[in-house]
């Protein structure tokens, strides 16, 4: 009896039936999602990043001070009284000008994440579109784009920030705009390469046989096939952009006071480090590292989940 059941369970037809049921169609993205969820570190990082985002959005609700208010009680005695404290409501202490550091860190995190989350994807989309056109059409257009790319890379980007600041100022939206302009090359080469490879696949010819226009082919048939590259690349560019913003703020050509960003806070914290007000560096640095590390692991998880070579 048991033998018969066992034999049935071992039979090829039985296994075939089961296998047939299991191979319900999973799209590439569903598959990738499954693989991503299996990566503990990446999932944990998504959680961490969500916490940071919530902190940036709702952190203000818990602060007693606004980010530009000066607490005259501690001004002048910052080293002694300006540290983190529960009594006076400065959870993270105050900065060199006596402003609440907690509120400023919330504000800075908001700026940095916003810069990353807007400027990163937008510049990759810009670069990827150019790359796709360039790879698809080839020829003179391709050579022009590549030429511009090479020249662009040779110019130190800090110049753009300095020049832009001189002419247009440096509000948050200005900042994001410059970062996008500086980063238009992001993802260009890699998407161009992918498209050059894909455009010789026969399914592109099949689409041409339907009378599809070039742009329709690029966006309907090629784009879904390079989307995974774009996603991976975006996950790499976001932390890079945050870093870039921090760097220019650190160098003093970034965001306009009293608005701030993690980079600007780090810069201020670092300049007063020797006075013994270590919290002014510590809190922004911790948040900054947290953001970078979780973005890194998310990117890593995406790469493992999406890159066909990894399987």
């Amino acid at each position: 009896m048991i033998g018969a059941v066992k034999r049935r369970l071992n039979s090829a037809t039985f296994a075939d039936e089961r296998a047939g049921e299991m191979v319900a169609s999973r799209s590439f993205w569903a598959d990738a999602g499954r693989r991503f969820l299996r990566n503990r570190m990446a999932v944990f990082s998504v959680g961490m990043l969500s916490v940071l985002v919530l902190f940036a959005i709702f952190g203000n609700l818990f602060s007693r001070w606004s980010f530009e208010e000066i607490d005259w009680n501690v001004l002048g005695r910052i080293k002694q009284d300006g540290g983190p404290s529960l009594e006076n409501g400065h959870w993270f202490g105050v900065d060199e000008l006596g402003r609440d550091l907690y509120a400023r860190v919330v504000q800075g995190t908001r700026t940095s994440l916003l810069v990353g989350i807007i400027a990163g994807p937008v510049s990759v989309i810009l670069g990827a579109t150019l790359g796709a056109l360039s790879g698809y059409y080839g020829g003179r257009f391709d050579r022009t784009v590549l030429g511009a790319y090479t020249i662009w890379l040779a110019i130190p980007y800090i110049i753009f920030f300095v020049v832009w600041q001189a002419f247009f100022g440096r509000s948050m939206s200005q900042m994001i705009l410059v970062i996008i302009l500086v980063n238009w090359t992001a993802g260009l080469l890699i998407v161009r390469g992918q498209v050059m490879m894909l455009k010789n696949r026969e399914f592109v010819d099949a689409a041409r046989m339907l009378g599809m226009s070039d742009l329709a082919i690029i966006f309907r048939h090629l784009a879904p096939n390079v989307l995974w590259v774009v996603v991976i690349y975006t996950s790499l560019v976001i932390p890079e952009v945050i870093m870039m913003e921090s760097l220019v703020s650190f160098l003093g050509v970034g965001i306009q006071e009293p608005n701030t960003s993690l980079g600007a806070l780090l810069s201020e914290g670092a300049s007063t480090m020797t006075f013994g007000t270590l919290w002014q560096l510590g809190f922004p640095a911790a948040i900054f590292v947290l953001a970078q590390v979780s973005l890194f692991y998310i990117g890593d998880g995406l790469r493992d989940a999406l890159d066909p070579k990894e399987r």
């Binding site: 099949a206 879904p224 096939n225």
Partner: peptide, 9 residues
């Protein structure tokens, strides 16, 4: 295989 778009059913 190459003549079918891998991202379409």
């Amino acid at each position: 295989i190459a003549s079918l778009n891998p991202r379409m059913t």
